[in-house]
């Protein structure tokens, strides 16, 4: 039996979309070739655009919702009262179940004195995974579904059983439920921020979340210029670590928009990510 290597998870997040999470994730992945890249932005995964992928395998992600056996129901409404998510209503002697509002807690099934409810499994999305290099996983939520959290949970399980000792996790935007799930078991976070007032506001929200979750982090300033900016000022004032700066440069943006991993073609950018990868290995004691 081979010795199990310690697992490490580095997560890339930001308070808002369009800050550069995926840009940072794929470029870091380009210089950390032993890693697994996981795109958990299940509402709009686009990290896989950067790679030629031929061998991705799909896996359905399902959740359970309650299913009624009408013959057994005698209208106690115990299920309706047990549901904390208002996913059920009892109208004119008939039970209505709203799958979209259900959080799969099972309280209704447990509460029913007549065993009139059982589990029904419905698909909320899928996970895709490459078998060979580059090793990538991503999740995709079905249109119209309310929550992608179960898909991120499944990605987390798959990270645990993957062969790689390091996972680079590209988080969804914001600080909502899916982000919190993506942060689970994170050893170190890269907080991508834009050097603007908006950027500072979003960074502060994200810092609150990371402090709450007790995750250590470093700030990466994207689209950086030498001009004074509120993000640098704040980091200095609060003594927060700025671990990398990506210069503001239209050619970088243009290449990135064409799906080119800039670190593969630009020496200066590559060096920034090599330095960043070393900082991360130190933080993770790899």
């Amino acid at each position: 039996m081979s010795e199990q290597k310690p697992k490490r998870k580095v997560s890339v997040l930001s308070g808002k979309g369009g800050t550069g999470k995926t840009f940072v994730s794929v470029n870091l992945f380009a210089v950390m070739t032993d890693a697994l890249y996981v795109d958990t932005d299940i509402e709009e995964p686009n990290g896989f655009f950067y790679f030629d992928i031929e061998d991705a395998e799909s896996e359905d992600v399902t959740i359970f919702v309650p299913k009624l056996n009408e013959k057994k129901c005698d209208g106690t409404q115990a299920c309706v009262n047990a549901c904390k998510f208002n996913a059920m209503a009892f109208i004119d002697d008939e039970l209505m179940i709203f799958d979209d509002l259900c959080h799969s807690c099972g309280a209704c099934i447990y509460a029913c004195p007549n065993d009139a409810l059982s589990k029904k499994y419905i698909s909320v999305g899928e996970i895709k995974e490459t078998r060979n290099n580059p090793r990538i996983m991503w999740g995709e939520m079905k249109p119209g579904k309310e929550s992608g959290v179960p898909i991120v949970e499944r990605l987390n399980e798959k990270i645990k059983t993957s062969g790689e000792s390091l996972a680079i996790v590209d988080s969804p935007p914001g600080i909502g439920c899916a982000v919190i799930e993506a942060m689970r078991d994170t050893d170190y976070a890269i907080l991508v921020a834009e050097p603007s007032l908006f950027g500072l506001h979003n960074m502060k929200m994200t810092i609150k979340l990371l402090d709450y979750l007790d995750v250590s982090y470093g700030i990466l300033i994207n689209k950086y210029t030498d001009e004074d900016n509120p993000v640098s000022d704040y980091a200095k004032q609060e003594k927060l670590p700025v671990i990398a700066k990506i210069p503001y440069d239209r050619t970088i943006a243009k290449m990135n928009a064409q799906g080119i991993i800039v670190a593969d073609v630009d020496k200066k950018i590559r060096q920034i990510f090599v330095d960043l990868s070393e900082t991360i290995r130190e933080e993770l004691t790899l």
Binding site: F85, M88, I91, D92, F98, L101
Partner: peptide, 18 residues
Amino acid sequence: PYAKGQSGVGVKAVELLR
């Protein structure tokens, strides 16, 4: 009572009225 609820408030409001 559902005015400030998190989710499913529409469902419950109609139930209340019914």
